[in-house]
């Protein structure tokens, strides 16, 4: 398990092992949605806001 810092609140996040670039994780401290930009080492950024044409 690796760790990364929340870009919103600075809290330390424990990341699961099978992390994928493009995956969204929630910060347990501030609730921000974070996108995994890279996995080795883990890089997080704020996830994009919901767009009107998202869906299935």
């Amino acid at each position: 398990m690796s760790e990364a810092e929340c870009v919103e609140c600075g809290a330390e996040l424990s990341l699961h092992d099978d992390l994928e670039a493009g995956e969204i994780i929630d910060c347990g401290t501030c609730g921000a949605e974070l996108e995994v930009i890279d996995t080795a080492p883990p890089v997080l950024d704020r996830a994009p806001e919901l767009e009107e044409d998202w869906g299935e």
């Binding site: 099978d18 994928e20 670039a21 493009g22 995956e23 969204i24 996108e35 995994v36 996830a47 994009p48």
Partner: peptide
């Protein structure tokens, strides 16, 4: 082809 890896994509990838 993706922009977000949801649990659906993860299931597929695995």
């Amino acid at each position: 082809l993706y922009s977000r890896i949801r649990r659906d994509e993860k299931l597929l990838l695995n």
